[in-house]
Design a protein around this nucleic acid. Structure first.
Lengths: 221, 221
DNA sequence: GCCGATCTTGACGAGTTCCTGACGCCGGGA
DNA sequence: TCCCGGCGTCAGGAACTCGTCAAGATCGGC
């Protein structure tokens, strides 16, 4: 597994690097946030191990920027056990949070757990000539990337996560628009229409985004 | 899996929510008992995680009301390890009881266990060449998907949930059309006929949707 | 503060679903 | 034999749902 290690402390960098390699991982190392973000994009690691408290950007900043453009699993290291920082980190999308001091065993276990979860999803769905990459938030039809608005994504995401299964109108409204919405089925009609226009060959007779009258919608692979 | 999280502590709500989402669950959150009960009905979660000690209703009350109308698995969280409360909760129908402080891993494991137990109930029913997938809202006969209207679904759903057992006309009317309906047995005749037409080989001599004259109907697998 | 993209809202036609009444069949009892 | 209650069937019209288009409101970036 390819691990990107981001830490400004040379000693720790070395220690962790050795431990990770000993466990059979391929290790990339950077010492600051800027190069970390760059490396995360260019080298496509499987996991990022991120130490908070870097020289140029705060670790939380790095995390935020990472999350803005990718869903690579991130394990955060920190010297503080404070709950606020921990919650902040998890809020920004960290997948796990490890407090120093920690044993190499623990870190390895967390990395394994986090990577397993990320891999076990259903990252890319193929349906006909559609390719839907949920983590990357990309859809392509016949190789051409299609732009979706945030709401369109919310809807498609929800439907695609349970292929072939009906999702009720209420569920869709609650999840995409919020718990206060439950009767505004009009929204669904408008946005399903928009999705069909972008994704279906013949929006008038859809093959993937199927209506179940009176009940909801389903995504058919 | 869809998890309904009921907790009045915002911090805990956030932390648990993140943990649950990280584990791949879809998370619905409510902060009080009233909305919890509502959400449990409207959103049909797979599991409810219920913290005792809510502002408006006691957690045990919520549990009781939930159980009055549904069999959704419930995992109870509590700060107390007292045996009496634990026994009370389990008596009221809680499926598991977790004492604070607990690890995310533990909670996830319990949720999984509880949902597995409940899920082994009636996910997909096979009867002859019929395949009825209740959660996905799909029926197929001899491999061909059959479209049902919402009312037809309501009826079939109810009958199929207790295979081989008689369901009275009143029960059917109450559950599908509402508590105000009880004498309109005509509806049943029309819709049972429609179901037979779609599901039975020979609608005139049904093998699955059986009439019990004067009593009700029965689904025979 | 402006401009473009996105989201909301309204109106209407087409199609489906639901309700309702009428009728026929069957078996049991008078 | 006739009557009667319960069930199955059919068909028409009312009511609802969905898809569509377009115009206004709102949001966000520059």
């Amino acid at each position: 597994m390819k691990v990107l290690l981001v830490d400004d402390d040379p000693t720790l960098r070395q220690t962790l690097g050795i431990g990770l390699r000993a466990a059979g991982h391929e290790v990339l190392v950077t010492a600051d946030g800027r190069s970390a973000i760059q490396a995360a994009h260019e080298d496509a690691p499987d996991v990022v191990v991120l130490d908070l408290g870097l020289p140029d950007l705060s670790g939380l900043d790095v995390l935020q920027r990472l999350r803005a453009s990718s869903t690579i699993p991130v394990v955060v290291l920190s010297a503080r056990a404070e709950s606020t920082e921990k919650v902040q980190a998890l809020n920004l999308g960290a997948d796990d949070y490890v407090t120093k001091p920690f044993g190499m065993d623990e870190l390895l276990a967390r990395i394994r757990a986090v990577a397993r979860r990320a891999g076990s999803d259903v990252p890319v769905i193929r349906a006909g000539d559609l390719v839907i990459d949920l983590p990357a938030r990309r859809v392509a039809r016949a190789g051409v990337v299609i732009r979706l608005t945030p709401t369109e994504w919310g809807l498609l995401d929800l439907l695609v996560r349970t292929p072939g299964r009906l999702v009720s109108q209420q569920d869709l409204l609650h999840q995409v628009w919020g718990p206060a919405y439950g009767r505004e089925t009009h929204y669904l009609r408008v946005y399903v229409a928009a999705l069909r226009k972008k994704l279906e060959h013949d929006p008038a007779s859809p093959r993937h985004l199927i209506t179940e009258p009176g009940m909801g919608y389903r995504f058919e692979p």
